[in-house]
Design a protein around this nucleic acid. Structure first.
Lengths: 126, 126
DNA sequence: ACAACTGTATTAATACATTTAATACAGTAC
DNA sequence: GTACTGTATTAAATGTATTAATACAGTTGT
């Protein structure tokens, strides 16, 4: 389900956040359904519960899940989360495109790159 | 000339690498002209010479500069460096676009985002 | 030859973020 | 009460980035 990539330079808790965000946004986890418990998910991924706890705190602050003390954490409605994700992605794109333009890559070259990336990304989903 | 952002999560030597790459690729530093010396640039940026040394090592390995011992480091011809930068940028775009597609963002939404980013980026150059 | 500059290499010390570990506390359900 | 939930705290271990202090080798100009 969730795979940790130890060659990835990003911290583990960020990888967990990203994977859970995707599962929520693509519908693999339905709104108001229970998230796995902190301790269970830690067991399943062979991680420390504190690492999962940190990921859940971020997911709650960014509107992906809500928590009821003693009961557990649950998937939120998608609207807020989806907006956050759009802003996050557009921010990343802006940084890459700024770098590209500063390095002498033209807008048309960028559009071609993006089309290639979209095609490659669509192939992966099959 | 080069500004270090201490709020940036990336290490300083990576920021130095990126800025110098941009200056080389956009023509601010001409091929075969001398790079600032390790010690001078360290002084100018208030950094340790080792940090600059590390950046220069990467720039040499990736074809942006070449070094003559005792004489100094010099800007390389652009062809290899420009190709490397294109690959680097397209790799970043691919990652962001993969994330977007996995999160339920459509190809058309992505194209709109990219157009907005290109427009914003062009405005910054004025 | 000498002085002053280049890049390079090495080692140590420091700082910081991440992660694990071991607990403890509070609320909920049966 | 027992067994789950989330939350909080403290300590230890680890890895990376950075600074610092040196040392060595090659080039340039006097």
């Amino acid at each position: 389900m969730i795979l940790i990539d130890y060659k990835d330079r990003r911290p583990i808790y960020e990888q967990v956040i990203e994977k859970l965000q995707q599962m929520i946004l693509c519908g693999a986890l339905e709104p108001h359904s229970p998230m796995p418990s902190v301790r269970n998910l830690a067991m399943e991924l062979s991680l420390n519960p504190n690492t999962i706890q940190r990921a859940y705190q971020v997911l709650e602050h960014t509107g992906y899940i809500y928590t009821i003390k003693g009961k557990g954490s649950f998937v939120s409605e998608l609207s807020a989360a989806a907006d956050n994700k759009r802003r996050e992605i557009e921010g990343e794109l802006q940084k890459s495109i700024d770098k590209a333009m500063l390095s002498g890559i033209t807008a048309d070259e960028l559009r071609q790159m993006v089309e290639r990336c979209i095609t490659a990304s669509e192939r992966k989903k099959l």
